[in-house]
Design a protein around this nucleic acid. Structure first.
Length: 479
RNA sequence: CGGGGUGUGGUGUAACGGCUAACAUGCUUGUUUUGGGUACAAGUGACUCCGGGUUCGAAUCCCGGCACCCCGACCA
């Protein structure tokens, strides 16, 4: 049989991983390029993923007592300059508004690259007493950073995120909260996106501009590269001092509070795409999919109405059980529809035709494995639920297994270079200096992704300098 | 921001400096078909990324810009 040519192709992962990623976004209709450099249009099917992120995280944040608020997009330039490290970190990538109303502005306005400065300026007027603490605020917003090299979702000049900002009376409390929020992210990635992440602390050179310490969730993509998929910062009292946020404590003494900020962006959607998808298209975990089940009715002219009615009945049953389901009633051949939904990563496909109705069953086909099974109508809901649960679990397990297989512990620089070149996460000793870190990056392209929380004390010697080291850190090439 | 590459209907491609820019697919209509991309017919759809230049003549050559892709440096 001739292989027909179709309008959209998918480059296999083995041929060109990057090209494959772009093709998936295209065929699954997640995003389009915009007529502005480095910016993208998030199409409805892609935006539904972001809405799901918002839906789940809002619930988790509120459990922690965090409230949503909104601050302006534009920041007076002088505010951005208030904290020294912060401005140095962000200055090269800010967009600046210099004109408005046809005239030059007295003071340029910065388009927020992040909102610490404008929020904290305001926090200083909100906080007076220890009774005002902790202050727990989150905002859903877009931010802009001028980026030289962009890639849809993973790095765009404008991106969507949530940024949480909290203020606490002690550094211990702030640090604990920053870690709690990191754990919220970890849980979200595990239970919803089916992405296993490594939690840890960023090295000095990788930490956030102006932070006391930065905690991170690092995920491994299918090519072995790391993606920093969310971060949480303990800001210490650096910003409180810079923005003059102070409060009177229980002993009637003035004090500076301690702050955190934490964020998760549309980059995570890029991580989601790369984690599970295959050469046939997108693969979505059921917990993230806006369509969890697609029903493909198989009919001919005579039985069309009967089959469609039957399919609608199945749909209603599933909807009543909180399953997100859609019937593809288009007048196309079944194979055509299978390809459509395969590309879009719908976790489960139900085929229903005359033979099935006669046998009181349907055919269920898993997107992730292609595995087909017959399901009795009476057991439809329970079977679909358990299939979706299995898909969710298997996607996570496969991603975890892949990461375990591709995480190497090495003790020499030669082994290190080889393991990095092969596309692994590499656990190795380093002397802990920024110079050595930089040297390793220059020579191998690998950076310290984090000092994982779960590594034990393990004395050894630095793979590069031979100096003493007390613990292994995680290296990888990163997106 | 340096080095390299690409830019043609919605999508994937073709066209020596020379006919009305071609083919496939999509989309629309009709008939047919429907358990992994049915078949046929008719129709639809492109200032060949933008702006200059060279030329009798430019999708094609040159210059500039923009966007995208790859490799570096920089960053969520």
């Amino acid at each position: 049989m001739d292989t027909p040519s179709y309008e959209k192709k998918i480059t296999p992962r083995a041929t060109d991983y990057s090209e494959w990623y772009l093709d998936i976004i295209n065929v699954a209709e997640l995003a389009d390029y915009a007529p502005v450099k480095g910016c993208m249009i998030i199409k409805p099917y892609g935006y539904a993923l972001w809405e799901r992120v918002q839906e789940v995280l809002n619930i988790e944040f509120k459990k922690k007592g965090v409230q949503n608020a909104y601050f302006p997009l534009l920041i007076p330039e002088k505010l951005l300059k208030r904290e020294k490290d912060h401005v140095e970190g962000f200055a090269p990538e800010v967009f600046m508004v210099t004109h408005a109303g046809g005239e030059k502005l007295e003071e340029p306005l910065v388009v927020r690259p992040t909102s610490e400065t404008i929020m904290y300026e305001v926090f200083s007027t909100w906080i007076h007493s220890y009774r005002d603490l902790p202050l727990l605020i989150n905002q859903w917003a877009n931010v802009l950073r001028y980026e030289k090299k962009t890639k849809p979702f993973l790095r765009t000049s404008e991106f969507l995120w949530q940024e949480g900002h909290t203020v606490h009376k002690s550094i211990e409390e702030a640090d604990d909260f920053a870690r709690q929020m990191l754990a919220v992210y970890e849980k979200f990635f595990r239970e919803y996106m089916a992405i296993p992440v490594v939690m840890g602390t960023k090295s000095e050179s990788e930490k956030f501009a102006g932070a006391h310490s930065t905690y991170t969730c690092e995920a491994m993509m299918q090519d072995g590269k790391a993606l920093q998929i969310s971060t949480s910062h303990n800001l210490g009292d650096n910003f409180a001092r810079a923005f003059n946020i102070s409060f009177t404590d229980e002993n009637n003494q003035p004090a500076f509070p301690f702050q955190t900020s934490w964020g998760l962006s549309t980059r995570s959607i890029g991580g989601l795409i790369m984690s599970h998808s295959d050469d046939k298209g997108l693969v979505l975990p059921p917990q993230m999919a806006s369509i969890q089940v697609v029903i493909v009715p198989i009919f001919n002219t005579e039985n069309k109405e009967e089959i469609l009615n039957f399919a609608e009945g199945l749909k209603n049953t599933l909807i009543e059980n909180d399953i997100k389901v859609s019937v593809d009633s288009r007048d196309l051949r079944p194979g055509d529809k299978y390809f459509t939904w395969e590309k879009k990563g719908v976790p489960l496909r139900i085929e229903v035709g005359p033979k099935d109705i006669a046998n009181n069953q349907v055919v269920c086909a898993r997107r992730d494995t292609g595995e087909k099974s017959f399901v009795k109508i009476e057991e439809l809901t329970s079977s679909v639920k358990s299939l979706l649960e299995n898909i969710q679990k298997d996607l996570y397990d496969r991603a975890l297994e892949r990461r375990i297989q591709k995480t190497k512990s090495v003790d020499s620089y030669d082994e290190f270079k080889f393991a990095i070149e092969e596309g692994n996460f590499v656990l190795a000793h380093i002397d802990g200096t920024a110079e050595t870190e930089k040297l390793i990056k220059e020579e191998t392209g690998a950076t310290i992704r984090c000092i994982p929380f779960d590594t034990e004390e393990d004395t050894g010697i630095c793979i590069k300098t031979g100096k003493a080291s007390s613990r292994r850190v995680l290296f990888a090439k990163a997106y």
